[in-house]
Design a protein around this nucleic acid. Structure first.
Lengths: 262, 262
DNA sequence: GAGTGGTCTAGACCACGTA
DNA sequence: ACGTGGTCTAGACCACTCG
C-alpha cells in the first residue's frame, strides 16, 4: 500500500494526521509503542526522511517521544496540581474543591530537592522587579525539585543582598521557620504578591536542567513578593514543565472575578 | 569556512547554538531577517538538509519564524496581560501594581470578536466539571477575539442547557447586563471559581483557528464557576497563545499564599 | 525570472541498548 | 549481533512572491 499527495496536503502531514488520530482515539494508548520508521516506510511506500518528518511533527506536538534505540512511544501526561496560593491558605475553600484537588495528589511518590545558595548579579527581569540599582547584588536560592528522582520543576528565589545578608536565608538548607517569618523579623513582611505566568518553549539550558523531552513547553511563573507599602522583598522564578503541572487558583467572591462573559 | 563534528555535538546543533546566541545577544534583533539557507550552507560547508535541521530546531523553540518566500525572521513577542481576576476587581489593589499592569496596555490596537452560539454534546472535560449526565446537552458560546484583525485568543463558555434555555445567553450577541447578572436572576449566582491552567502544544485545529506559527505553545485556562453551595454553573475554556499573553494574578494577605520558601 | 523556503528521494554511516 | 532512531549528503522539483 502506498500514499500519494492529493491537493495541498503534504504526504508527511497526511501520515502525521493518521497517526495522531490513532493516538487520540486510543488505537495507540499512553506508553504504547508506535510502528517503527522502517515499518512506516513500507506501509506508506515513501522515503524514510518523509516518515521522519511526520514523526518529528508529532514529537514537537508533545504527543510522542522517541526512545532510541527502542522506537517511538505515546507520551503520557500525569500533571500534578501546582497551587501558588497553597502556603497561606492551607485548606481549600470548600470540600468539593478539596476532593477535586486531592484527585491527583502526590500518591506516594518520593520528593527530593537540591538547594544551592549563591551571591550573584541578578538577571534583568529580577533586577527590574526588585527595583535594584544597576550594580546591586542579590542572594539567590536555586532549587531543583524531584519526584521519584525525576526532575519536577525549578524554583529560584532572589533577595536583596543587603536585606538578608545576616539571616539564615543564606544557608543552603530549608529554613525551618519559613522565609516569610524571617522577612517579618527583619522588618519586611510579605503581605502581597504579583504572579506573572509566561508560556514558552524552554531554553536549551532549561531543557537540560529539567530533562525535558522535545515538545515540552514550560510555564515560567514569576512571583514578586511585596510588603504592604509595595516594597518588593523577593522574586521567585519557577520553571514548570507543562507535562507535569496544572496551575490552580481558587477564587471566591471577595477576590473573585470570573472571566466575565457578556 | 566550514564546520566539523567535534565530540558528541551534532553539526546542526552547533549551528543552531551559534544562531541562537546571536539572536539572544542582539546580533539579530526582533523582526530582523536571518541569513538564507543557501548562505548558511556556504558559510558552514554542509548540505542544505543539515541547515534545515538547525533552522527547524530554532523554529520549534519559538525563536524564529519562516516566512516563505522571504526568509527566516527573528520572532518578536509582545505579550499582553491576561487577568482572570479582572472583572470583579476592576481596579488593581495598589498604584504600583496599576502602573505595572498598564505598561503593556492595549495601546490603541483595535479589538474585535466573533460569537457563535450552539447547542452541543459537551466535551468530556466540560461534562465532568459541570457534573452532567452522560447524554445531557449544553449551550456553548464560542468566541474568537482579535486585535488588529489578528486572532488573539479563544473563549468558549459552556452552560447547562436546561438552566439557560430561555435567557439571552442563547443569543449570539454580547449580554449587556453581563452573564453573571443573568445567572443571578435565574437563581444561580456565581460566587466562586476554580481556575486550572494547562500548558501544552496546540492541536492542529487550535493552531489553525488561532493562526499560530510553529513553536507556539498555549495555555488552556479552564474556569469553573460555582455557586456558594458548590454547584457548577458554567465552564469557560480559554485557549491563550503563549506569544501573546502573560497571565497575571494579584494576591493580598487574605487570599494570599506566596510560593512559600523554606 | 530569480530566489526563497517546502517537499521528497535514495542512499550512507553512526551510537546505543537489548537480546 | 541486530535493529532502532540520529545524522548527513547530494541531488530534484515545487509554489510562492517580489521586483
Amino acid at each position: 500500500m502506498s500514499i500519494a499527495r492529493q491537493g495541498r496536503q503534504p504526504i508527511w502531514q497526511q501520515i502525521a494526521d493518521e497517526l495522531r488520530a490513532q493516538v487520540v482515539d486510543g488505537t495507540f494508548s499512553a506508553g504504547e509503542q508506535l510502528p517503527t520508521e522502517v515499518e512506516l516506510t513500507e506501509r506508506y511506500g515513501v522515503a524514510r526522511n518523509t516518515i521522519r518528518q511526520a514523526m518529528t511533527a508529532l514529537v514537537n506536538e508533545g504527543l510522542v517521544v522517541p526512545r532510541p534505540p527502542r522506537g517511538y512511544f505515546v507520551r503520557d501526561r500525569r500533571p500534578m496540581f501546582y497551587r501558588p496560593q497553597a502556603e497561606f491558605r492551607e485548606q481549600p475553600a470548600s470540600p468539593e474543591m478539596d476532593r477535586f484537588l486531592m484527585e491527583h495528589s502526590t500518591e506516594g511518590r518520593s520528593p527530593r530537592q537540591t538547594i544551592d545558595v549563591a551571591i550573584e548579579a541578578p538577571p534583568a527581569e529580577v533586577r527590574k522587579r526588585l527595583n535594584l540599582a544597576p550594580d546591586e547584588l542579590v542572594v539567590v536560592r536555586k532549587r531543583t525539585r524531584y519526584l521519584d528522582d525525576e526532575p519536577f520543576h525549578t524554583n529560584d528565589s532572589y533577595y536583596r543582598l543587603n536585606l538578608v545578608k545576616d539571616t539564615e536565608i543564606m544557608r543552603p538548607e530549608d529554613v525551618a521557620r519559613g522565609v516569610n517569618q524571617v522577612l517579618s523579623e527583619i522588618g519586611y513582611p510579605q503581605t502581597r504578591a504579583l504572579d506573572e505566568i509566561y508560556i514558552r518553549m524552554p531554553t536549551p539550558d532549561e531543557a537540560r536542567r529539567l530533562d525535558l523531552p522535545p515538545g515540552t513547553p514550560i510555564a515560567c511563573h514569576i512571583c514578586t513578593g511585596l510588603t504592604d507599602e509595595g516594597v518588593p522583598v523577593r522574586v521567585v522564578v519557577n520553571v514548570l514543565p507543562g507535562d507535569r503541572h496544572v496551575i490552580v487558583y481558587e477564587r471566591t467572591k471577595s477576590n473573585n472575578g470570573s472571566d466575565e462573559d457578556r
